[in-house]
Simulated scan of single mutants.
Amino acid sequence: MPSQLNVVKLLFVYLLISIQHFAAKAQKIEQFSLIRPEYKVANSLYKTINFIDSRNDTSTLGIVQTGAFNRQALVVAKDGLGNQIKNVLADLTDSTAANGELLLQLRLYNLAEVTSSFSEKGYFKLYAHLFAKVDNGYSIINSVDTLVVMSAMDVTNALLKAGSNVLTDFIANNLTNKPQSKASFPYSYIVNIDRAEKKQLRLYTADTFTDGVYYRYRSFKDQIPDGEVVVEGDSISDGNIKVYDAKRKLKNLNPANAYAVVFKGKPYITNTFGYHPVYRRDDDVFFNGRISIYRNASAGTVIAMSALFGIAGGLIASSGTNDLYDGEVKIDYLTGEFIVPKQ
């Protein structure tokens, strides 16, 4: 019969193993804070700032890899990004600032890291608009749409710093700028800007779709094919679609290497699992099919990176737990991201 001391030891070992097991399964979090600027902008036209987070996934800012084993961590804004932005503006301005009001609308903010054999590569994508309050509406001052790519043995800190500095500099560089025009938009329009933007995309408005192969979402949403398709038969199926290479020779299309194809006016999303018919409902575009999602990261972040950086972007966060999803998938009109229902 085991002694009381041995029982205690066994219980302790069991508890330790359990803690390690659950810790290994838990998603690591990297707290993110904007770096407080150490410089001032004299004669700023603005003293206050409001914030609209229009990203599809507002819960995280992306993915980095931390620790000796490059474990993935979700980047989460400490105390909320809106509060941090207000603090940044307060640090940037001094007693010479006028009483103007700003509105920052964040459309994309994605941090991502991918590891190769001897180095790490970091990606940061920022898309945002800055408005000034004018009477009862808001007028655009400036927009930023930028992609930062960097490589290093350990890129995490440099990537987080870039994610902070680019946003802070965007605000700082516009503090003495007036709106670009007299056009003014109500707050409700800015919050629902996606409705107006979708009306400018042929994917969302065209009565017919243009036959061809589309290697990027950008081409697909504008309905400008990247190349021709030759189909053996009257319908789309695995192995019967050919495209021309650079030497104008026909070759079989690997569906994993394209974003979409259109045949006889019917659009299909393509991926490793084949071809999935696309359809519109209300103001959105959907398809029914199978996709891979990553449970250790925001699926939205991972797939958005694939759309932003091209086919190879799928490598980003690929070390996460890969699950399959079958069912209806919505296409994000801005990035081409595949959005699955909340699991």
Rank of each mutant, 00 (worst) to 15 (best):
N110M: 02
N110P: 00
A112Y: 01
A112E: 08
E113D: 07
E113M: 07
V114C: 01
V114K: 04
T115W: 04
T115C: 07
S119I: 02
S119N: 11
K121H: 10
G122M: 11
G122E: 02
G122I: 09
K125P: 00
K125E: 06
L130P: 04
V134C: 09
V134A: 10
D135T: 04
N136H: 04
N136L: 07
N136Y: 08
Y138N: 07
Y138A: 11
S139W: 12
I141C: 10
T146W: 00
L147H: 06
L147V: 05
V148A: 14
V148R: 08
V149W: 06
S151T: 11
A152K: 10
D154T: 05
V155R: 00
T156V: 00
T156Y: 00
N157T: 02
N157A: 14
K161L: 12
G163K: 08
G163T: 04
S164D: 12
L167R: 13
L167G: 14
T168I: 12
T168S: 14
D169E: 14
F170L: 11
I171T: 07
I171M: 12
N173R: 15
N174R: 03
N174E: 04
T176E: 05
K178V: 10
P179K: 14
Q180L: 15
Q180C: 03
Q180F: 11
Q180I: 03
S181F: 10
S181I: 05
F185M: 09
P186R: 04
P186Y: 03
P186L: 03
